[in-house]
Amino acid sequence: MLSATGRSTLRIFGELGDFARFTARGYTSAIGSRRLGRRLARAIYEQGVRCLPVILIVGTFTGLVLGLQGYHTLKGFGSASLLGPLVANSLIRELAPVLAALMIVGQAGSALTAELGIQRNSEQIDALETMGIDPHGFLVAPRLLAALIVYPIMTAFFALIGLVGGWISGSVLLPLPGSVYWSSVYRAIGPEDVAQCIVKALVFGGLTIALCCYNGFTAHRRSTTTGARAVSASTTRAVVFSSISVLAADYLITSLLV
């Protein structure tokens, strides 16, 4: 019992160390990697452009629901004019970075884990190594860098479209004057809120895409399964760990910054 606990603790810390080393190597191997720009553009396309529709749809509905719920709750206190600050604060400080990260993980993160897992399975990663190409620089580095660009952008899109959603709920469907909504939004949000939003987006981006790359890259190390099962197990792990890490990191950052 005790030794089992000890073994699994050691295993977890070993894996954490592996992950940290993998991430560090991913970033450092970007230096000197040739034709990185082309692969970076492709990674931005996969994580950003392809995920844009889902971000815009989810962002709109998040704003709509916030506006609807918030309006009726605030109306009960006679403070419906505070709808703007409610929507803006929830979106910019919490919901936009968190939900955007979860959406990108669900669409692009899972796909890239599966892609790397299959490349590992079909020996494409070994092939890169035998050709003298660093697979970290070739496959991992562009995706890690793309995440740092894409996540803040997607978070901003999510927040802005969410604010519009809140306005549609409060001012188009419900009787709050639009000028009251927008002026209170501007008043409620300060530079520190936007800074917190961007810090979160950067941390989530760095964390989740690194987790997805790591799980795909090490698909052959799943001791219990092989082949297609290993790829599916890695993809599941990548999505689950990424989602957990987003929410845990969100709590940590909020408690540190507020």
């Binding site: 490349q119 020996e123 092939a127 890169l128 035998t130």
Partner: peptide, 12 residues
């Protein structure tokens, strides 16, 4: 040195 993999290992 070059290596020809059993499954070809072409980048798809």
């Amino acid at each position: 040195c070059s290596y020809l993999f059993q499954g070809n290992a072409l980048l798809d």
